[in-house]
């Protein structure tokens, strides 16, 4: 045992007591917040097993005798599998495109200094603010001219545009802190910027990309308005649009709505769990060292 690790040991003993107290407080707070979030999902799933007539009067009790009617209606009336595939095609492609373009742009925005940089940043921030309702008509006209109405690309391209600024801004936040030394060293060894981007920046930024991918997937997946306006044929409907058919946004069949929400939420949670594995502690440090 060397000197530093003895000091290390002492330090740990000294703080052990306060650590226990603070741990208790931390877990208490976390559990309270977790209760509110878990309860909500439970509430939705629980109500999806109830008859529509009791939900408004009795939504907070446990569905003791769960019924599957709502799911049967959904699965019998609609081609859920096909809709899942459509959603996957649209949102998956949007994620890939957004990752590629936003990764390149965010990298350049954090590394280069150039004259229009601040203007560009404000332009990106500004486009976060465009309400979808005020840009939909020109977008639809263009999609129409490109002959992409009722085609996945007709949704993928506009959605890529509307998620791009968000992705660029978030990625910039993550990338601006990355150490420059590695890049300088690689440059000395003869790498060009593209090598550096693909060999160094991408691997270190994996957690950042995973986070941005999750939200891009989510926004695109839940973007009912754009999907409704552009996709007209039932066989091209993604899952949200299809389920909106049976539980219209302002409709009254809350049992169906609860089951629809459950059907919609499931794959997103799976994608989240899947991508979240990349946002694990220590990965970044390992990547830098390695």
């Amino acid at each position: 045992m060397n000197k530093s690790s003895i000091a290390f040991e002492k330090q740990i003993r000294k703080t052990r007591f306060t650590t226990v107290i603070s741990k208790i407080i931390i877990y208490f707070v976390l559990c309270i917040w977790a209760f509110t979030t878990v309860y909500t999902l439970f509430w939705v799933v629980n109500n999806s097993f109830k008859d529509k007539t009791v939900i408004l009067t009795d939504s907070f009790s446990l569905a003791v005798k769960p019924i599957l009617d709502n799911y049967e209606t959904a699965f019998n009336k609609l081609n859920i599998g096909r809709a899942y595939l459509n959603s996957f095609i649209i949102s998956g492609s949007t994620v890939v495109l957004v990752m590629v373009f936003s990764g390149l742009t965010a990298y350049a925005m954090t590394r280069y200094t150039f004259r229009l940089k601040n203007t560009l940043y404000l332009m990106f921030a500004g486009s976060l603010l465009f309400p979808a309702f005020s840009t939909i008509v020109p977008i639809f006209r263009m999609v129409l001219q490109l002959n992409l109405v009722s085609h996945p690309l007709g949704v993928i391209i506009p959605q890529t545009a509307s998620n791009l600024s968000f992705a660029i801004i978030v990625l910039m936040g993550f990338m601006s802190n990355l150490p420059l030394e590695l890049e300088e060293a690689a440059f000395m060894e003869g790498c060009n910027v593209f090598d550096i981007f693909f060999r160094i920046i991408l691997p270190i930024s994996k957690p950042a990309f995973a986070t941005v991918a999750i939200f891009t997937f989510l926004w695109s997946y839940n973007d009912l308005f754009m999907q409704m306006v552009i996709l007209r044929k039932r066989e091209t409907y993604p899952i949200c649009t299809l389920l909106n058919e049976i539980s219209s946004q302002f409709g009254t069949d809350f049992g169906l709505m609860a089951s629809a929400v459950t059907i919609v939420v499931l794959p997103v949670l799976i994608v989240y769990l899947f991508l979240q594995k990349n946002i694990v502690k220590g990965l970044t440090a390992g990547a830098i060292k390695g």
Partner: peptide, 10 residues
Amino acid sequence: ILGIFLYYPF
């Protein structure tokens, strides 16, 4: 992409 599908519509 932003120009065609966001700035122009706006």
